[in-house]
Design a protein around this nucleic acid. Structure first.
Length: 442
RNA sequence: GCGGAUGUAGCUCAGUUGGUUAGAGCGCUGGUUUGUGGCACCGGAGGCCGUGGGUUCAAGCCCCAUCAUUCGCCCCA
């Protein structure tokens, strides 16, 4: 019989305590920002009927990248690969009774069957933030501001990332009316635009030519050059400038500037994969050359809720994965120092265990998190455990200390110690927590 | 689904044109030290060289297969 493997399932991660601390930090930062905008958390099952994704997510996700099985009742079941269809289902179910604008968020784990690679695993957790019920760009603005604030909350500055913005509505006009492409040609051209930064200008030109028919090719390349060459919206071809799609984007950029966001850029090549986006789309992009990649993104998908047979609900949302943001934090050296969630490791000397347990209980009643070493090991072994666990304080408790009610409290990082009574121990630890750790919802 | 790279101690890796008993650093562990970790010194444990086949007098090293990890591609949150 083969030896059992200790490895986690391919593309999925074990979270040891030191890893879970990091994940908790990311989750807690997310929650802080979105809750500060009044978003409330929801959740839903890991499993959904497969048809939910067949409807709108895009073909490949369903056929190739979904974990699926047939349950004992013969139902075809999928492990959720994304949250958007689920939340749309939930909104549709209570379409009439919800209070709008509905501001919701969740942090689900999602599964996709694909080859793992940098920044993309089979299981990841994703912050999903959505606003339902507002059709003006003020909703798009709010979601982008939240994205921006999250990046700031992680310690990023404006130079580390940029926000790319485009519009599906504009893309459709661009393809169908400006370039005069049919549906099939449009899809090919959208894919080509999407990978513009990955191919050489020559390859781009040749592939564009291959999409046009002979008649279109005469003027097509010039038109594309005019599009790509536009660094600001104002440089767009006149035919497009007059459209309401462009005017909406311009209004959005004005609002962003008013709110102090200066690293947002219009990018006509931004496409985003999902079919369900209908209007403005945006993407937060890492500007570091070593990690030059899309970090996360979102946009408006006004049509999804109505798939469930109810009147449409205008919706804007984005999704942000834990794997990519962790890579970003590591690339930019923004990862906080890992430290235990425990405040004090109690080192017990001689026959003091009973007294130490009583003291620990009293400390807990004051809100201090205490781990007691109950092993009876030699002093240095106990200290080593505390250091390895990265607990910030050690408290030495022996028979003499219990009798005097004065204990030695050691600050591990500073390596200095003080003899303190109960009250001072509590305040010292709480001061430390207030200064260095923001753990109110860990 | 396609292509590249890599699998040797818990971790990071070295290992000569194939040659006898497979190495280092860190970590772990015991001691110097029965109430103070990180430093120092002295000991110790720990390897089916990913797995299976093949070539050879002889394989960690060469060949084939397979599994795993990883980086890209396709695709995309």
């Amino acid at each position: 019989m083969a030896q059992l493997s200790t490895q986690p399932y391919k593309g999925a991660r074990d979270f040891y305590p030191e890893d879970k601390r990091i994940q908790n930090y990311i989750f807690s930062t997310w929650r802080h920002v979105v809750e500060s905008y009044g978003y409330e958390q929801y959740d839903a099952p890991l499993l959904e009927p497969l048809e939910l994704y067949a409807a709108k997510s895009g073909q490949e996700i369903v056929s190739e990248q979904t974990y699926q099985f047939v349950d004992r009742g013969g139902r075809t079941v999928a492990i959720r690969p994304e949250m958007t269809p689920t939340v749309s289902r939930m909104v549709a179910a209570r379409r009439q009774e919800l209070a709008y604008p509905a501001r919701w968020y969740s942090i689900p784990n999602l599964w996709r069957y694909e080859r793992p690679q940098k920044g993309r695993l089979r299981e990841h957790w994703q912050l999903n933030v959505d606003m339902f019920g507002v059709e003006t760009v003020d909703a798009d603005l709010e979601l982008m501001l939240i994205s921006y604030d999250i990046m700031k909350a992680f310690g990023a500055n404006d130079k580390m990332f940029k926000i790319r913005v485009n519009s599906r509505r504009l893309i459709n006009i661009m393809m169908a009316e400006y370039l005069e492409l049919d549906v099939v040609q449009s899809q090919l051209m959208i894919k080509l635009f999407d990978k513009k930064n990955k191919v050489t200008p020559e390859e781009f030109r040749d592939q564009a030519l291959a999409i046009f028919d002979q008649e279109q090719a005469k003027t097509g390349l010039k038109k594309i050059a005019a599009l790509i060459g536009a660094k600001t919206m104002g440089e767009l071809p006149k035919e497009l400038l007059a459209t309401s799609a462009v005017q909406d984007i311009q209004a959005l950029f004005t609002l962003l500037r008013e709110r102090g966001v200066t690293n947002a850029v219009f990018d006509i090549t931004l496409m985003r994969g999902f079919d369900y986006y209908t209007d403005i789309v945006f993407e937060v992009f890492d500007t570091n050359p070593e990690n030059a990649r899309s970090l996360f993104g979102g946009g408006r998908y006004d049509g999804l809720v109505s798939l469930f047979g109810v009147q449409p609900v205008p919706t804007v949302g984005f999704g942000m994965g834990d794997v990519t943001i962790k890579d970003f934090l590591e690339t930019h050296n923004l990862m906080p120092k890992p430290e235990s969630t425990t405040d004090v490791y109690m080192i017990v000397l001689g026959n003091a265990l009973k007294g130490a347990q009583k003291l620990a209980r009293e400390l807990r009643e004051e809100g201090v998190k205490v781990a007691v070493d109950i092993t009876g090991r030699k002093l240095d072994k106990q200290i080593k455990s505390a250091v390895k666990m990265k607990v910030p304080f050690m408290l030495f408790v022996g028979e003499q200390e219990l009798q005097d009610e004065v204990f030695t409290l050691k600050d591990v990082a500073k390596s200095n110690e003080e003899k303190l009574g109960f009250g001072r121990i509590v305040t010292t630890i709480k001061d430390y927590r207030r200064r260095y750790v923001d753990d109110d919802d860990l």
